[in-house]
Computed example of a mutant assay.
Amino acid sequence: MQTIIIRYLESVVDGEGKISHVLVGAESYEGIKEALIPAMPRPKPGKVPHPVFLTKCFADIDHHVWRLENVTAELTDGQPPAVYHVYIKRHDISKEEFLYQTLKKNPATTISKLLRQGTLVEVDYGFVQQTARSTAELKTNKRYMDTLLDAEMHKRRLAVVVKVISKNLIQVAPITSQSAADGDRTIFKLEQDTLDKMPRYKHSGKDSHVICSMLESVSIQRVLPPTSYFKNTTGRNPNYGVALSRGEIRTLKESLVHAVGASDYVPFNEVVLERKSVQERDASIVQLNEQLAAAQAKVDELMAIERMAKRWTEEMGRNFAEEVEFQHDLDREDGLK
């Protein structure tokens, strides 16, 4: 007996702007009490819900990425099967090139040449699903540990590369518009100059915060470059040219130390800065000693001149103090003092 039917309907706009829904495919379950289907996001108060995308390949349609628009459910005469309608719209991915595709196209290019610590990327984490029950109820997928669960990192979002682990795997810290709690040193805010390199984030009107407490290793098949300004235009630069500033990288390292609970240890960059400060002080001391030696040599020379002047004054039968005062008077007349 059929228990669940899932119908996928594409939203199509005609020349007059009218929207119709065309059935593009269906899934039928027999003897199954619940099945996983896409879930509409639950927006937070005052927030716009984020878009949800799904991958689905239908016969005779050369397209596989769709934007979710709505999900409805009903029972026929109050009896199974439960019929679910999933409304979808085509999403253009013609200008998107994921990291694995870039590396495949350019065998001479390695992942380490494209990415380093601090490089900004976008990561397709995927989306939290829900369960469609034979009773036409929509429930959470909390028992399906083989899928993304609520509260886990999800959707496509900006992220910072922390480490290149292998040719197929990188470690990233995700970025969110949510501000950090007071005293949370595992999160830091990106500089506006960094956001200005990417039109979407430059004009969003939102701050962006790096969440070092949610480090994750992701496949390069989830990674693509963010839309940025390059070659006098905007687009996804396959050379991954957007990165944190040096100051932000120092802050990233400090936040990573706090994220792993090692805040009792002095961060390496602080050791480097202290060492540099000591070297600068040592160089200053050397310079001051050289200046002191030069001044001492000048004093020794003047003292020798003074002794010679006293000897000459004595030999000429004159008073040294009076001769010095006479010279001061001459200097004042000549405007030397």
Rank of each mutant, 00 (worst) to 15 (best):
K89I: 14
V123C: 12
L114E: 04
T110K: 15
S134V: 04
H91D: 07
S112L: 14
D92Q: 04
G126V: 00
R67K: 13
L75T: 10
V71G: 02
H63W: 07
F53Q: 11
D77V: 00
L75Q: 09
F58L: 06
D60A: 13
T110P: 05
V52H: 06
S112H: 14
E74W: 08
V83G: 00
P107L: 10
K142V: 08
I93V: 14
S134H: 13
K139G: 06
D77E: 15
V128C: 13
R143Y: 08
V128F: 09
I88H: 03
D146W: 09
Y84R: 05
D60H: 10
I88G: 04
V52A: 11
Y87A: 12
T102W: 03
L149D: 13
N70Y: 11
Q117H: 15
K105N: 10
K89N: 14
E137F: 10
G118K: 05
A108N: 14
I88W: 01
G78Q: 09
A108W: 13
P107I: 07
I93Y: 13
D146I: 13
L103T: 02
K105L: 03
N106T: 10
D77T: 03
V123M: 02
E122P: 01
I88Y: 02
P49A: 13
V48L: 14
L114S: 06
L114G: 06
H91F: 15
T131I: 13
Q129D: 07
L120V: 07
R67I: 12
I111N: 07
G118M: 09
K56Y: 04
Q130G: 06
T76C: 10
N141E: 01
D62T: 07
L68T: 05
P80S: 11
H50L: 15
V71Q: 05
K95Y: 08
P51S: 11
V123W: 05
D77A: 11
T72H: 07
N141R: 14
W66Q: 11
F127Y: 15
V71R: 04
T119W: 06
E122T: 06
C57H: 09
K105I: 00
A132Y: 04
S134R: 14
L138D: 01
R133V: 10
G78C: 13
A82P: 00
K139W: 12
P51H: 05
A136K: 02
H64A: 12
G126S: 04
D60S: 10
P51W: 08
D62S: 12
R67V: 08
P81K: 05
P49D: 11
L115M: 12
K139F: 02
N141Y: 12
T55W: 08
L54I: 15
C57Q: 14
V48T: 15
V86P: 04
I111M: 12
N70C: 06
V123K: 08
R116I: 11
R90L: 08
Y125C: 04
